[in-house]
């Protein structure tokens, strides 16, 4: 039996959902499969929570070989990993982590763009993870409709600030997840966009007791990658096991995210929160108010010589096949542009 050393890195602490499941699901599963033939054995060194890299540093850490396997938080790297924004630029399609994870991962494997982006960062793509079911709107005051958002301040982060661009007088205020409670409490913002699990973790119900169930959609944010030089030295058997287990990890984590989302919504209501269903017409109105950020995204990739529009169409088709009817067909417009 040959022993192979693997340094796993993430900047997030070991208690974070996807890190915990890497320790408790991914690693034991790889070990189990390798033990079946007994040819190879992994010697894992797990370095999380800033011991080697900060959350934003995983991509570079894997690129430079400070870690062998890493969980890259892709939303930090709009510039190096543009195609990873796929689900973030297509809101109002699917509020299901499992479906989005599967669709994005398949796109990554069927089209060269995503793998090429990681390849340029000296790493090999294994699989995409989705750890949140959908963004919702949490408010201080009762909300029912889109007009309640007009002229108000909404806390958000990253791409979801762009969801507000079409709403009259609505201003997005940037903030970290840990700041949202204070931002709402002090009236700095009237609403905050986040997902139910985070809302429950940060006790948002105490300050924002109204959740507008807008189902903005699940977003992919984690990708497992392997340093390319390390990968090339791995035996084929180990490569195969890592690839297979990464796909199982993808579905496993997305499943847990969905379970937690349900539990978190229950906890929100138990903590005194009220969930208000947004009507289909209102959701449609919100979706239609937005600029077509998906088409912008696809055009950016097309211009860079990648099949952006095709990827967008394929992605929308995959979700449609899985039974998710988009509120706005981002791809149809992209094709005609």
């Amino acid at each position: 039996t040959e022993t192979i050393k693997a340094v796993v890195i993430d900047g997030y602490p070991a208690r974070a959902l996807w890190v915990k499941e890497f320790t408790e699901f991914f690693i034991p599963e790889v070990d189990r499969r390798l033990a079946e033939t007994g040819n190879y054995k992994m010697d894992w060194q797990e370095s999380y929570g800033g011991t080697i890299v900060k959350p934003k540093g995983v991509l570079e850490g894997i690129k430079l070989g400070l870690g062998d396997i890493g969980i890259v938080t892709t939303i930090f790297h709009s510039s190096k990993l543009p195609s990873q924004a796929l689900s973030a630029v297509t809101p109002f399609v699917a509020a299901d982590a499992r479906a989005v994870a599967k669709a994005v991962d398949e796109i990554a494997k069927e089209y060269p763009a995503m793998q090429a982006e990681f390849d340029a960062q000296n790493q090999v793509y294994l699989a995409t993870g989705v750890v949140l079911d959908t963004y919702q709107v949490f408010s201080r005051e009762p909300v029912n409709s889109l007009s309640d958002l007009e002229g108000s301040k909404v806390a958000g982060a990253g791409m979801n600030l762009r969801y507000l661009e079409g709403i009259d007088g609505a201003a997005g205020v940037r903030g970290g997840l840990t700041d949202f409670y204070n931002m709402v409490q002090t009236g700095l913002v009237d609403h905050a966009m986040l997902w139910p699990e985070a809302a429950s973790t940060f006790k948002i119900a105490e300050v924002a007791p109204y959740m507008l169930k807008a189902d903005l959609g699940a977003v992919n944010s984690k990708t497992i990658t392997v340093n390319k030089d390390y990968w090339e030295k791995l035996p084929d058997e180990v490569k195969q096991v890592l690839q297979d287990v990464a796909v199982e990890y993808r579905d496993h984590v997305a499943g847990i995210a969905m379970d937690r989302a349900q539990a978190s919504r229950d906890a929100y209501v138990a903590a005194g929160g009220t969930i208000v269903e947004m009507s289909p017409e209102e959701r449609k109105a919100w979706a239609m108010s937005m600029p077509n950020i998906a088409a912008e995204w696809a055009k950016g990739l097309d211009d860079a010589g990648q099949p952006g529009t095709e990827m967008l169409q394929a992605y929308m088709a995959k979700l449609k096949d899985a039974g998710f009817e988009p509120v706005r067909d981002w791809a149809a417009e992209a094709a005609t542009n």
């Binding site: 510039s79 190096k80 600030l161 997005g172 940037r174």
Partner: peptide
Amino acid sequence: KDYFGVPGVFT
């Protein structure tokens, strides 16, 4: 021409 920030928001 790598950038940091979010396209469409601030880079």
